[in-house]
Each structure stands twice: as C-alpha cells, then as structure tokens.
Design a protein around this nucleic acid. Structure first.
Lengths: 336, 336
DNA sequence: TTGAAAGCGCTAACAC
DNA sequence: GTGTTAGCGCTTTCAA
C-alpha cells in the first residue's frame, strides 16, 4: 500500500539501514547522502509504518489514561493536558473509561491491554490498596487521584486532607457553624476517598466544632445527580446545615441545584464549596467556591513519570503532590 | 518478553497455523486439538501481539475521533458513546484534539496518522467544504456535525436548520418579539455553522418578524466565555432582546451567567435556549431549555459507518440525520 | 560512513 | 484438518 523504507532506499540509491538512520538520527550520516535520502522521502511522501516499528522495538508508543468518566469535566480537562504532554514526548495517549467499575479497573490493572499499550495511568475509584498490591502485570503503572495510597507505584495526587481542610476552614472563617459534607463514599472497608472527609473533620475539630455524622451525606457516585439528592436530604434535617463542602465540584453543582429548587439562598442561608475547579463552576449561578488543584501539573507529571518508567527509569516509586489553592467565589460570599 | 504463538505451538505440539486458527477461528480445527491449544494458551497466559498482527494484516484496529475540544461536554458525551461502540466492533478509539484549528484539521485530513489509524471520524469546524474536497489521503473518513456539507464522504448530523428553527419557533410561541442569536460564527467565506442561523432566520420570517442583524452576536469560539461576552454586548443595545437562542448549550450557559450578573431575570425578562442537551444544562440555575440531538445514535452511526468503510463497504457515501427533540426547561418558562 | 542480513510475531497462501 | 513457509516494514548487529 504505502511507501516503505525500501522504496526510499531504492530511489536514493542507498541501503535500508542508511534511510533508517536518516529517519531516526541514531547514527551520523554523510551530508550529501542525507540530502538525497531526504529528497526521496519528500518526493514519495514517506511516513514510517508504526506497526512494523513497534513490532521491532517491542513497544507501541501508546499509553492509556484510565479514568472513571470522560464526562466529568475534571477528567476531561486532565485528559486534555495529558494528551498534549504525551504527544510532546512522542507517545499517543488513548483513553479508557472504567465507569468507576471494579471489574474494569481490575482488568486494566492485570494488563488486559498489555500488547497494545506501553504503560497505564490509572485513577482508581472502585478498587482499593489490596487489589493494587496484588497486581501481577508488569506494565509500567502510574496512579493518580485520591483513590489509593501507599502502594509501590508512582502516584500523583494533591494533599487531599489538606485540600478539604482548607476548604472547610474557609467556611468556618465565614462564621458558619453547621457545616455539612456532601458526597461521602459509602462506608465500606475500602480506603478510597476518605481523605477528604478526614480533612473536613480535622478542620472542624481544630475550630472546636463537633463532627456530626448526620451532616455527612453519603452518595453512590460523585455526579451532579448524587449531589442534588444528598443536598435534598440534608435540607430535611431538623437543623439543616448553613454551609456545605462537597466531595467535588460536580456534587457541589448538584447541591446548588437542590438549594435553588428549595428556594434556599446561597450564600446567605447556605454557603457552598467544592473541589476540582472545573470551568462549569466559574459560570454557575452562583459561581462556585472551590479548591483548584494544579491540573496542568498533575497531567504533566503523570505522563512524564510513566514515560520515564517505560524508558527504563528504575528509581524507587515516588509520591508527588502538586499544589492546590482556594478559589473564593459567590457561593461562599464573594460578590465579584 | 511475552508469550508468543510459537510458545503455544510447542507446548501444545501443533503448528503455528493451528494455534492461529484456534485464536482467530478462521479455519475449522479438530476438537481435541483445539482443547490442547486452548489449555496451553490459558496456562501460559498468551495474548496476541497486536503490532505483529497489524503489520501482517495491514490494519491497526485503531480509529480516531477528532473533535475541537474534549472539554466541551457535548463532545465528551459523544466520545463516551463512540468508545463503547468501537470496542464492541473490535476497534480501539483514540481521541484527537484539533482545538478547532485549521492546521490541525488539515493535517488530520491529509492523513498525518495514516499508519497508526485505520480510519477517521472528524468534526470539522475551522475548515470548509473546499478543503475537504481537496483532500488526497485515502484513509476512510466519516464527518460529523454541522461544519461541512455536500462532500463525498459519509456524514452524520442532525438537521441543523430544522433544529434551530424549532428552538426559535418555541421562543416565538412564548410571545417573545426580540429574539437574539448568540454565537454566530465570524462572517467569512466558510460554509461552517451558518445553518443554525438559517433556521433561526426562517422561524422569524415564518412568524412575520424581522431578521435584525443587530440581534445576531458573533463569537470567536463557542465556549461559555464567548456566550457571556456576547450576551453582555446584547444587553447594551437600546432595545435589548427578550429572548436568546444560543449556538450551543455552552454559549447559552455563558449567556445565563451574563444575565445573572446584570440582574436580568430568566425567563421573565429574557428567555434562553441552547442546542446540545449537555448534562450541565439540566443543573444550571435556571435549568436550560435546549434541543437534544440523539447523541447515542450519532456516535453509533459514525463508528459503524467508518468500520464498514474500513472493512470494504463500497456503497456511495450517505448523509444520515439522527433525530432531535425540544426539551423545555426553566430558562424558557417551564417551572418543573 | 555505509551495507547486508537476521528476525520481531503474526497471517495466509499453498501443500499435504 | 493440519503443517510449512514467505513476508509484512522496520531496527540493529556485525562487517566492511
């Protein structure tokens, strides 16, 4: 079908190896030879056949980013960064949707794709530390997010305890006294995602306020619908909250919706804060106070660490913590 | 590195071809042989090396979905469907981000990836009909969206004229008399995206209302920021609009934001409608009236047509029109 | 600085 | 129903 190295070699009157060297720049090639080869390449419109290259090299140049849902803007924004970073390093990034399901995450962990990708970036939500520890696959792996900690793989995540502590302290500083948490994971034995609740709790304790389980609303998932439902529940309490920290911006937006429908004023009656800083929160009514993790850095680091592993880096696994900052908007009182 | 066909063949005491046949099921294999081979595969944990297979077959099993932005929920939702559909047909879908840029779209059209993908689904926004007609690459191509029409490729898109006509007629039926359009493409020579304005215009004419260019606000892109800016501009007019149809939900949400900041009541003072039906609009305050295209069908059809082409379908290119429906929500007066 | 040639793992044409 | 083998396009070792 296409033009191959051989065609170029014939056209330029050189050997296959020489053309290969011109293309890859591994070994020095004489200037006049290089020019002849380059001309042949341009004239014939040669592009390397990647399947052949991969077969020979034992690598595909593909890496996967496995996230729970593409339709969560946080992950879409992250993927956006990661795709660019990967391209810059000569890799193609492909997306896997785990739908937050255990079996999907396990299948990926165990290297279902081992012959198609060179490495995997995974944001686990349904599996826990033990599943990751029990993994047998050899494929390089980088973890992102707050799902799993303390495993022998590179891990990129902000300090989630500090993040939710910061957000909660902000609500405390506003003078709020009944601060709820929306979007707790179901209380099972997984380690997953309890860090944000820990930060919330720590901030309350620090302020001398009680940690009241009735104000902690669990949700099945972390979407808008879940946030709305949980908020509706909180509003039925005898003493409803005067502030809410949501697990993420999406649940916070669901909460805003429930509050609007109930005719509760935000921030006057209830202040709301989320975590993630998705663009949607800069345009919601009211705009959403949130914790903004450095997504650029998370995406960059995840891809860089993975590529380094693929290319032989053997340093011990590291846990990197990109920074975050509090962004105050209308939902917690800022008018601008 | 991994286990190869040869290993299995040795273990099971058969030839390479037989193992290949067990794996692929092309030729019948004796029952006892099949079992021995299958056992060897299970024991050794064999998975085919895709690079080798692709090299041999001349296909990679990869298709690309090229969209202007991953962070636009409409495309994220579409990609979600397409990924699943592709997986069901034995293909892996990878995402290309064109950022709505001309050069990116042209590069893809001309087959930059020709050796890595078997086909391309493209949502063009920056290029026009002529660029598509002038394309030289051989790679199967399916177009989606309202960017380019009347080209000799399969094309999946809703009837955009009818869609915006329907939305506009809805605003007319509400009794609105100064209906603006937010998110017109810049007035250049491209065919791109003028269909939605045509539908808007047709509905006005049908209602005996003037098409007033001052009420048509162009935007550079189609994001929330663009919608907000355009709406702010419309509010400065001597006679501001009492309704707005936005190019898409994202610009509509930007418009909602501008209205909220200006203290204009929606829908009382200004009714707002968008197109796309992204989840965000079901949770905005107020919730957003919109045109809901059948995204499932768009994603499914695009992938199916492409795969059919890749596998040799030679029927003449077809233009398929999935359905859409009007979804009335608070921003145009529905209270539920 | 350049060339010859082996071989990555697989599929498919051909032979039995 | 099963086996043998050529060769997809490339990288890389060895030799010149």
């Amino acid at each position: 079908m296409g033009v191959s190295l051989k065609d170029i070699a014939e056209r330029a009157g050189v050997s296959l190896a020489t053309v290969s060297n011109v293309v890859n720049g591994y070994r020095p090639v004489g200037e006049s030879t290089r020019q002849r080869v380059q001309q042949a390449i341009d004239e014939l419109g040669y592009t390397p056949n990647l399947s052949a290259r991969h077969l020979r090299r034992g690598r595909t140049g593909l890496i996967a980013l496995a996230i729970p849902e593409l339709t969560n803007p946080y992950f879409a924004e992250l993927a956006d960064v990661a795709i660019r970073e990967a391209a810059g390093l000569g890799y193609t990034l492909l997306m896997e949707n785990t739908a937050g399901e255990r079996t999907e995450e396990l299948t990926l962990l165990d290297g279902a794709q081992r012959h198609i990708i060179d490495g995997l970036i995974l944001s686990p939500v349904a599996i826990g530390r033990n599943e990751v520890l029990g993994r047998r696959a050899q494929l390089p792996l980088v973890l992102i997010g707050e799902g799993v900690y303390d495993v022998p793989y590179d891990h990129i995540a902000i300090d989630n305890v500090a993040a939710s502590r910061t957000a909660t302290a902000h609500l405390v500083a506003l003078g709020r006294r009944r601060i709820a948490f929306v979007g707790a994971p179901p209380w099972d034995d997984r380690q997953s995602a309890h860090l944000r609740i820990r930060g919330y709790r720590e901030a309350l304790v620090e302020a001398g306020m009680p940690f009241d389980l009735r104000l902690v609303a669990p949700t099945a998932q972390f979407g808008r619908t879940d946030g709305e439902r949980a908020m509706r529940h909180l509003l039925t309490l005898d003493e409803p909250p005067d502030a809410v920290l949501a697990y993420n911006d999406l649940t916070a937006i669901g909460a805003l919706r429930a509050l609007a429908r109930a005719g509760v004023r935000v921030p006057d009656d209830v202040a709301v804060a989320g975590i993630d800083d998705i663009e949607e929160g800069r345009f919601s009514n009211p705009t959403l106070t949130t914790i903004a993790p450095d997504k650029r850095e998370i995406g960059r680091l995840a891809v860089r660490r993975l590529v380094a592993r693929i290319e032989g880096d053997a340093r011990p696994p590291a846990h990197e913590q990109p920074t975050f900052r509090l962004v105050e908007r209308e939902s917690s009182g800022s008018t601008r």
